[in-house]
Amino acid sequence: HNGKLCKLKGIAPLQLGKCNITGWLLGNPECDSLLPARSWSYIVETPNSENGACYPGDLIDYEELREQLSSVSSLERFEIFPKESSWPNHTFNGVTVSCSHRGKSSFYRNLLWLTKKGDSYPKLTNSYVNNKGKEVLVLWGVHHPSSSDEQQSLYSNGNAYVSVASSNYNRRFTPEIAARPKVRDQHGRMNYYWTLLEPGDTIIFEATGNLIAPWYAFALSRGFESGIITSNASMHECNTKCQTPQGAINSNLPFQNIHPVTIGECPKYVRSTKLRMVTGLRNIPSIQYRGLFGAIAGFIEGGWTGMIDGWYGYHHQNEQGSGYAADQKSTQNAINGITNKVNSVIEKMNTQFTAVGKEFNNLEKRMENLNKKVDDGFLDIWTYNAELLVLLENERTLDFHDLNVKNLYEKVKSQLKNNAKEIGNGCFEFYHKCDNECMESVRNGTYDYPKYSEESKLNREKIDGVKLESMGVYQILAIYSTVASSLVLLVSLGAISFWMCSNGSLQCRICI
């Protein structure tokens, strides 16, 4: 991952900044910058967002509201009850120091605090018919004063009620008058409520006091790749198909172990950190130390980045220098085999997901714990399936590479015959000098055995068991695999060879 928040398929997220979902939807004055928000790819909250409900109280069923919003990608904020005409018999300019803005008392931008007009609070009834052709999110509140005197001074009615009804919602609220500790300079409380109004449905408000009335509502448009994440990451000019709280993932790998919460087309989250597919040879310690064997393909974004291909070729060293050249036929066979294998694994496992966190309130801790156990169970199954699949494929890959290298080895052996000696570690020792032209003939299969047989015969008789390297004779190393990324691999195959001279070296080696 890149540690950044990015656009998702070209669409920017909605960053709530210092506000949370509650503050944004109710219209906390400190969240005025969010009022123009219309569309987004996903919503970003920060872990310690401080601006929620400015007048103390709870947004009821907040967790369910977050779940609903996680599939919303755009909205239209509109005046559901026009301020100047909807409440002619009531005062609608209630403000509070708890919702101060720029040093002055204020109130929510989407709600109206209705109080008595003169000395009376006549029963009010108002309704709205949803003609938007889509779901409408309606929010309101109920004020709970701290004393009967406060109730009387604001609403005149000691036994007030609030009723809200639609086809799918029907509740009646009565204020709970009680002494409470002071929070944000208030002994009173406000509880906030919401409902989704279906197209064509009607919502009716009736009250004799204590109503925090809707002013603006939201017509919602769903987008199934949307979601809500909690993150401290910063926004950058970048684009992605998959976003996590820790950063964007741009990967076609089937798995990731970065974060379980994802938005967009994302690899499946697994616990494993070692889900690797081999593309090189079986481990040979001396070669492995030099980083030549054991190439791997990573299938977990965050564990290993991208696929690494092994390729086969020849390396030689003689009086004229040293050089490398790919054996294109065996390399292409290996590439085709690995590509098919990788595609097979991805096809089997690479279903892209959006995974969002589930919200539970403080009273639902047991449910949250149960949900976590269920999620953990599914996660263990996914991890096991992934590891088992790759384990089985790896064994076949190792066998496949062994065969490829063996074929190259036999190709060289059949040409050199007794003009060189096998020394048991995949290397041959020449009994004759071999210049670049000679080396090329070994690589392309045109090695002239009779041409060098007499010199080889004489050297075999002279050496008589002495280690060949100390006599200045020449080696050919018969097994060799270097490691390159897919891009470098293609470039390498396009070149005939490249040279690395070893000044004054008397050794001649050709490596497979």
Rank of each mutant, 00 (worst) to 15 (best):
S231K: 06
A233F: 04
E237W: 06
E237L: 11
C238I: 05
K241W: 00
C242Q: 11
Q243E: 14
Q243W: 10
L253A: 09
I258R: 01
H259K: 00
E265Q: 13
R271F: 06
T273Q: 12
L281G: 01
I284E: 12
Q288F: 07
R290H: 00
L292T: 04
G294P: 01
A295G: 08
A295M: 15
T305S: 11
M307C: 01
W311I: 08
W311T: 07
E319P: 01
E319T: 05
Y324T: 05
A326K: 08
S330R: 00
Q332T: 08
N336G: 02
N340C: 08
N340R: 14
K341I: 04
K341T: 07
S344I: 00
V345W: 04
V345H: 04
I346N: 05
E347D: 13
K348G: 03
K348E: 04
M349L: 15
T351C: 07
A355R: 07
V356D: 06
K358S: 14
F360W: 15
N362W: 14
K365F: 14
R366D: 08
E368C: 07
N369G: 13
V374E: 05
F378K: 05
D380R: 05
W382M: 09
N385V: 06
L388Y: 05
L391V: 12
E393W: 10
N394H: 08
T397H: 10
D399K: 06
D402R: 09
D402F: 06
L403Y: 07
V405R: 03
N407F: 00
L408Q: 10
N425S: 08
C434Y: 05
M439G: 02
S441V: 03
V442Y: 11
N444S: 13
D448S: 15
Y449M: 08
Y452M: 11
S453R: 09
S456I: 13
D464S: 14
G465C: 00
V466H: 03
V466F: 11
L468S: 14
E469D: 10
S470E: 04
G472S: 15
V473I: 13
Q475A: 14
A478R: 02
A478T: 13
Y480S: 08
T482I: 07
A484R: 00
S486N: 04
L487Y: 03
V488R: 02
L489Y: 15
G494D: 02
I496P: 00
S497L: 14
S497I: 00
W499F: 15
C501G: 02
S502D: 13
S502M: 13
L506D: 00
Q507K: 11
C511V: 07
